[in-house]
Design a binder for these strands. Structure first.
Lengths: 228, 228
DNA sequence: CCTTGCGATGAATCCATAT
DNA sequence: GATATGGATTCATCGCAAG
């Protein structure tokens, strides 16, 4: 929030980000504990740093997301699109918050992670993540026409950088919504996959991350991606 | 509601249904008009009967859905699963209502209609419908273990019976959540595709429909599907 | 160099036991 | 009696080592 508040208004063309889901823990103890354990099978030790904000109480999470969405709206130019990752639990809140701070709600995209995800006994495999699509105001003539799909099938990558790392190929498809040469902002950068995709696709990029280990990883990856 | 209220409690093993979405009209004038026009390209004449309940005011829609979900919960046995079609606008309301009347919210399934759907200029194609998955209480030993997928790719069929007709192949995949021989209920039957799939897959079936033309169509299709 | 096999893992969920 | 914890479950996939 500190960083975003210092940005100039109307200086960004697109937001693509994966906020913490706020579903990290079912119990108070779990919310206070390290959030890493949820994502591990029992007894397995992780070598990846924890992620921030995934184990917040629901109201704290909502307040944080509200604030970020408000800031993001200010720094975006009119006609800018924003894509927000979420799961099926968080989507209703995210949609309500986005609408209430003034984003136009445009639709819902699907990331299909495929059959590699864990099966669900007596039920349906949770193999998707959702992407809320919003826009600030209406389009300008700065936006060349593009026609993109609504479902993206990509396997989850082997976790080499971050606990919830996205495939670069997925992010490259999403980045297409930003006009070439435009600025993409990711306020929850993590290991910087959004930025790698943006730079590879000829967009400019700004990322923000509060966990210093991930900041370092992202810097290295972005330098690599920016090489000619 | 009249019909459902006469059912015995705990007499149904599974609910699979496609309620009206309540998104039929953005204007009061539109809500008062015939709902059929929304689903047609301009100037094209439809020979299909209108569907009921698609042009309700939001609060009337919510009240109707609440009532149906309450009735459905009563007639379901413990451990019964229910699948409710919706779109990305209606999902938050549907999830909230389901939870508030006592259904356990289990997850979200995706019907991917594919690239045959209309593209979206300067944006992402709206090519999916969502399916809210709920369950009454917890599983019993009457339920044999099944492991099903969470994304279903099937093209929309040519509309021969109903305005929002689903592919039989899609419904056959969903019906697998009901134990073989169990009773599937569809309180918004339409042209009866759920029933056709249920009968073809060795489940029993009860359907309810308030538009008499669709009732007739469904009866014919179900008789056909029930033939040995 | 290609195939085979083994082990480990997953934005998870369930249920019995412990607090 | 309500809440928290921990172990078991499931299979498609990937990495790595051996053949």
């Amino acid at each position: 929030m500190d960083v975003l508040s210092r940005f100039e208004s109307e200086s960004v063309d697109c937001v693509i980000t994966d906020p913490p889901y706020g579903t990290g823990a079912n119990t108070v103890a779990g919310r206070l504990a390290s959030p890493v354990s949820k994502y591990r099978s029992s007894g397995v030790k992780s070598s990846l740093p924890s992620i921030a904000g995934d184990s917040m109480l629901p109201e704290a999470w909502a307040e944080m997301i509200t604030s970020i969405m408000r800031h993001a709206l200010r720094v975006c130019r009119s006609g800018a699109n924003a894509l927000w990752f979420c799961d099926w639990r968080g989507y209703p809140s995210l949609m309500r918050i986005a609408g209430s701070v003034g984003w136009g709600i445009k639709g819902l995209l699907i990331w299909d992670k495929g059959k590699g995800t864990r099966p669900f006994k007596n039920g349906f495999r949770a193999q998707t993540e959702l992407i809320l699509w919003t826009r600030k105001g209406s389009l300008t003539d700065r936006d060349p026409p593009v026609y993109l799909d609504g479902v993206f099938a990509h396997r989850t990558p082997v976790r080499i950088h971050h606990m919830t790392e996205k495939p670069v190929a997925l992010m490259r498809e999403l980045v297409e919504i930003c006009p070439p040469g435009g600025v993409v902002l990711d306020p929850f950068q993590g290991s910087g996959t959004t930025g790698v995709a943006a730079l590879q696709s000829g967009r400019r990029y700004i990322g923000v991350e509060c966990v210093s280990e991930y900041h370092g990883i992202a810097c290295r990856r972005l330098e690599e991606a920016a090489k000619p």
